[in-house]
Design a protein around this nucleic acid. Sequence first.
RNA 1: GCGGCUGUAGCUCAGCGGAUUAGAGCAUCGGUCUACGGAACCGAGGGUCGGGGGUUCGAAUCCCUCCAGCCGCACCA
Length: 572
Amino acid sequence: MSSTYESLRERLQEAFDAVAPGADPALRLSDRSDYQANGVMALAKRLGRAPRQVAQEIVGGGHLADVATVEIAGPGFLNLTLLPEFLNHQLGAISLDARLGFVEVNHPLRVILDYSSPNVAKEMHVGHLRSTVIGDALARMYRFAGHTVIARNHVGDWGTPFGMLIEHLLDLGEELAIATFSMGDLNTFYKEARVKFDADDAFKDRSRSRVVALQSGDPETLRLWRVLVDESISYFGEVYAKIDVTLVPGDVVGESHYNELLEGVIDDLASAGLLVESEGAQCVFPPGFQNREGEPLPLIVRKRDEGFGYAATDLAALRERVSVLHGDELLYVVGAPQAQHLEMVFAVARLAGWLPDEVRCEQVIFGNVLGPDHKMLKSRSGETVKLVDLLDEAIERAYVILEERGSDLDGDARLHLATQIALAAIKYADLSSERQHDYVFDLERMVAFEGDTGPYLQYAHARVSSIFRRLGEPWQPRDVHFELAESASRELALGLLGLPPALSSSLSSLQPHRLCTYLFDLAQRFTSFYDACPVLSAEGALRDERLALCDLTARTLRLGLGLLGIDAPDQM
RNA sequence: GCGGCUGUAGCUCAGCGGAUUAGAGCAUCGGUCUACGGAACCGAGGGUCGGGGGUUCGAAUCCCUCCAGCCGCACCA
């Protein structure tokens, strides 16, 4: 099947082509009619003709006659109102379609999606929230669209801090250290190591030689390192399970994975003539980047001390993603502060010929999470906020609210529901604002259950679901004729037909918030309908029509929320 | 200084492939309740879209400039 939007667009394209081939109808939703096409004015300008006259000609061709009535308005807008039969047909089609009209892509891509990326032996904190949540939503949307997603959790598992971490591990004793990790108290572990490193010269020396041992492959040192890495990854796994994201341990490909490839990166850059020594460091100077003094800005691949910079690792990873994983698209869900670094990495990769033009390579930039003071979110004591603490606080609030509401669930069931609501609150708040913008983290608002929030959407879904619970018999999509006599049901129907373009636009812009906006709008349409159109007390064909609309609403909300990584419980 | 991002209603934000009256949520005020979950619905007030200039028949949207703020700008990743 073809989605309603696509059908309309195709018809309009035919109508426009008949006047001038290739003109863009600029079809979009309208608040004056069902849809509007704004392309006439641009076309008329191109042709040097009067817009309304061109509009007449386009409409006169009759290409839209069996789908919509068209009114020419203002300077030359086409206001389209869908015909009842067309609406009925489209609704019938999505009723029988598990994908609700969203067609899988013809040419699946291999999408390498880099997201989350916490650091070994460090607590996951708010700084990882957005990458994890946005990345996961994109993964789900891409997969649903039919693409192959290869998730890459590029964890920081290498570097000089591991000297002190391993020494601290030895000081504590492995067992105690592991216990610390499994309790999720990574901050303490890291901080203790740091304090000793700063205060204790002997410890500092041990740490430094431990780094050397690590880098030269000393087996015992590697074993200890492995302990740290494995414990961390298993801890991350617990956090991912808690926040309900699709990342699995197999997606973890840490920085250490690329160690063997770093020499090759340097060599190949050198033989390509791109490598320049500057102040003792091996650098590439991609054109167009400047430092404070207006001089060319280097991407440092090898530091003065011979160590590799993270640029080298990123380049090695990028190469592997192209040549070994055969990615068609490389996406990096990484915060805005790293934009320049990644731009430089991409630029160098293009210069070196490692990144073919046809491979899309892009940073999925996101803004910061701010506190109520509009500064980077910190705990009251001024420390970074642990991700699990954030989740727990949200769960607690949701739990209390359920209690106040006199939820008939108790014990584990209530806790489970509170968790679903809390995650919806946090994820939706994160996903529903424009990705690149900073947003203010306000738990009160997010869990408030009113307005444009995750819980509101869940509530709308729970209300539809309750209708089917009360129905007392299983309901299957059946052959109903959609009359849509009331404006509320017609508005709902139009909303139900809108998923495909919303999802497409969300995907092509890598902006989950467009899907959020759609779902919120749909939920509002539903609650208006729910208020105006009794379902169970209706009779005959009208009752079937309303049940069918409810069924579609429930399925659309479930699917849409699912693509955002949000559960849609049947009862709240 | 250079680069990037931001400035839209009291608050939090959409809209920015130009276009018919600038939208939503929260808050405020006023309605709706013997119907399927009131965590709801309906409605009202509230904005010189940071300032200024320009392009256009038409600009929140494109261009220039100024102001304010945030981020990045050589060896921590």
